[in-house]
Amino acid sequence: MTSDVATPVCPRAYPFGQTHTVDLEPDYREGGPVSAVVLPSGAWGWLVTDHTLVRQVLADPRFSREQANQPQVARLSTEILPAAAILANDAPRHTVLRRRIAPMFAPARVAAMAPAITDLAHRLVDGLIERGQPADMVSDFIEPFAAAVVCEMFGVPADLRERVFTLGDALTAREATPQSLARARGECEELVRGLAARSPQVLVSLMRAEDDIDDEVVNLLIACLIGGRGSPTVFLSSALFTLLREPRHYRQLVEAPASIEAVVEELLRFVPVGVGGGFTRVATEDIGLGPVLVRAGDAVIPAMHAAGRDPQVFDDPDTLVLDRGPKLAHLAFGHGAHYCVGAGLARLQAQIALRTLTTRMPELRLADPADRGRWRVGRVVRSLEGLDVAWT
């Protein structure tokens, strides 16, 4: 962290615990709405868990993403993003980059993708049924579903997809070294430039007429490909596990398919995707944040998943309640200028996946009712390694 303010006395070690599952750690409630935490790197920051204060951090431009993209700042990933990356920029450059990518995710364009996404989901279910049970829902349905959607959207040929996502995994490892990150980033940029040369029509909406394949385009594509496969895979895996571990929840969707849109919103509120809070910000001036005076240069970690469990906003927040309604004030996609540009597509994917599974596989269940999930370690996300299911 860049501040010269003394480290608070006894900051708590973060992230909390060693194994991260779909059950949010109780430690988030124990430190109050804003508390000091220290990360494995030794850097410390302010962890924010209160819903109102998380919204403030996400929306207030005095909390900078750009200044947080430094090696000494408290965050889980050790990767320093390139200067051209959308995730490492504040306005006005972030605004320019967002305008370049936003047309790809325009509501009308996303809605037009629904028939193809639905067909893909049904073809994957056909494969599950043909191969027989038990099946691993992560590797046999969810991961190929998420990967195919984003790859079709950006025209990634089948023979390049596995390589793109292998590099993506390398870029999201918590214990990656600067050397391994630089190597993976370089290979990913080279691969994307090759993709652009091979399928230039895919990039028309991202490029100004006078451009070559510039660094902005390359980094926008990397962010979309890695995030477009990784985030839906993590969320859908955990969401399905959450529904199946209490069979009455899955049965409710089978019996009331019209509720799926609202249920997706509740799952977005309830399911924690990250091991820790969202992208760290750095305060650019002294700012009062609830009970704490955050000093200029201090790192601030907004925990969106903890905000989704705020009892001041959600009744019985640690219980999955499928009939809360379609309008929930969750922060799963962020808030403010950095609100996820792909939120509409993510919602559509989740709705189609659940609608297809509950229609085609109404008896879907965990292969072992006592299964608590096989969770990966050493990631920045709560990722299921596998989810074994049966359906007859």
Rank of each mutant, 00 (worst) to 15 (best):
I226P: 05
I226V: 15
I226N: 13
G227I: 07
G227Y: 08
G228D: 04
G228A: 07
R229C: 02
R229S: 13
R229V: 05
R229Y: 06
S231W: 00
S231Q: 12
S231V: 15
S231E: 15
S231T: 15
S231I: 14
S231F: 07
P232Y: 01
P232N: 04
T233R: 14
V234Y: 04
V234H: 02
V234R: 03
L236P: 02
L236M: 15
L236T: 01
S237A: 15
S237I: 10
S238G: 15
A239I: 04
A239P: 04
L240S: 07
L240W: 06
L240D: 04
F241H: 15
T242L: 07
T242H: 00
T242S: 15
L243A: 05
L243V: 07
L243F: 08
L244P: 04
L244A: 10
L244S: 11
R245T: 01
R245C: 01
E246K: 04
E246A: 12
E246Q: 13
E246Y: 00
E246S: 09
E246G: 01
P247I: 02
P247M: 03
R248A: 15
R248D: 14
R248H: 12
H249V: 00
Y250D: 10
Y250I: 06
Y250M: 09
R251H: 12
R251N: 06
Q252W: 12
Q252E: 11
V254R: 03
E255Y: 01
E255W: 01
E255H: 05
E255C: 05
E255V: 00
A256M: 01
A258E: 15
A258P: 00
A258M: 01
A258W: 06
S259D: 14
S259R: 14
S259L: 13
S259E: 14
I260P: 02
I260C: 08
A262K: 03
A262R: 03
A262F: 02
V264W: 03
V264P: 03
V264M: 07
E265P: 05
E266N: 07
E266V: 09
E266L: 10
E266Y: 06
L267A: 04
L267S: 04
L267I: 07
L268P: 10
R269I: 09
F270A: 09
F270C: 10
V271L: 11
V271C: 11
V271T: 09
V271W: 08
P272Y: 08
P272N: 08
V275F: 03
V275D: 00
G276H: 12
G277V: 12
G278R: 11
G278V: 00
F279Q: 13
T280F: 07
R281V: 11
R281Y: 08
R281F: 11
R281K: 14
V282L: 10
V282Y: 09
V282R: 10
A283F: 09
A283P: 11
T284H: 00
T284N: 04
E285G: 05
E285Q: 15
D286C: 05
D286V: 06
D286H: 09
D286P: 06
D286K: 08
D286W: 06
I287F: 08
G288W: 10
G288K: 13
G288H: 14
L289C: 11
L289N: 05
